[in-house]
């Protein structure tokens, strides 16, 4: 499947881009993270501590254990600081 993968805040800075299309066979978000981390050092650095990261699937917050079936857009970002 092909996913739009988005990165925000320091995740975006560490990886060096805000959005990319990713061809993957990952079943869950965690699988996708492992796949990306294996690609290059900058991904491994960005995903080093999953506790300091959040993920949204099609713009709804989700868990790293969530399945990717039917998902089109995955976003990774640090805990939010609005308000």
């Amino acid at each position: 499947m092909v996913l739009d993968v988005l990165y925000f805040a320091w995740v975006r800075e560490r990886i060096g881009l805000g959005r990319e299309r990713v061809e993957t066979t990952a079943v869950t978000v965690a699988d996708l993270v492992a796949e990306l981390s294996a690609r290059e050092e900058r991904y491994a650095l960005a995903f080093a501590d999953l506790k300091s990261l959040r993920v949204a699937l099609d713009q709804d917050l989700a868990e790293f254990s969530a399945p990717l079936a039917g998902v089109r857009e995955v976003a990774f970002f640090p805990p939010m600081t609005g308000g």
Partner: peptide, 23 residues
């Protein structure tokens, strides 16, 4: 809810550098 569930991220820029505001 806006503080921690709306997808905003703040970065502070000062003369001696910049830093993302931590949750």
């Amino acid at each position: 809810y806006l503080k921690s569930r709306a997808p905003f991220w703040k970065k502070e820029l000062a003369a001696d550098g910049s830093a993302w505001v931590a949750a």
